[in-house]
Amino acid sequence: MPLDTVGSVEAGLDALDTPVVEAKVSLPRRIVGRVLPPIVAIALFVVVWQILWAAAFWPEFKLPAPVDVGAQIWELVTTGEILSLFWVSVHRAVIGFAISLLIAVPLGLAIANITVVRRGIGPLVSGLQSLPSVAWVPAAILWFGLNDRAIYWVVLLGAVPSIANGLVSGLDQVPPILPRVGKALGAGRWGGIRYILLPAALPGFLGGLKQGWAFSWRSLMAAELIATSPDLGEGLGQYLHNGMSLSDISMVFAGIMLIFAVGVGIELLVFRPLENTVLRARGLTRAS
């Protein structure tokens, strides 16, 4: 084949072989398709609850009316108390999560890259992940007293192992060809980590972050529930604890729902979009 016709054949091949991009569904349709199913599910849940309550299977102090729980939450909203509850808990969780990140990333890097470290403390870190971090509450209270440091300690022990493990598994799943290519392109040790390994491990790492957030939120609520003191300020855990002390089941239900809402909300508002962006950029789209 003469060289000058190569260009046009090549252009034709490029046009034919390029993967076809799926047509995008219109925005209103996507919103309806995504938002409607969970709303219907929640509505169904409330209806079943209402029916069970109306049938009076259980006494009122065990199963409150949906309306009462709604009123309880509404009162928190109108008095503005909900903001301080959210603030106390969420800022603790975010700070705890941030500190966990600072500890877990170097730890994960060390475990993934240094054989001795992996053999030595790798299993320990995996094991810590399955130890409920609530188990640390008594020790934390004895060590630090009833204060924020005790709570952060518990949150750290919940979040650090899962973030570190996420990073390790992300790094382990990097196709071996990529670091080789990096080396051939002139990457040194640090260049290889910074420009090849870390970005390549990002999807797995994000999974670890998501789980780390869930663990830190969970541990925080456990810590707040157990370690209650006027000095600590009132977070969602304390609110729930107060509901129990007052034998107010509608307050307890409201507390559970608020805790749930924060956990799910942060996942939906922060981690889901982050993960989707990363996966889509790499052509790893998934049905969601």
Binding site: P175, I177, L178, R180, V181, A184, L185, G186, I196, P199, A200, L202, V278, A281, R282, G283, L284
Partner: peptide, 16 residues
């Protein structure tokens, strides 16, 4: 200068 290498797979970085 540093030899350039092309492998059997393109092995492009999927995030770039």
């Amino acid at each position: 200068s540093r030899p350039a290498v092309v492998f059997q797979e393109a092995a492009l970085m999927p995030w770039l």
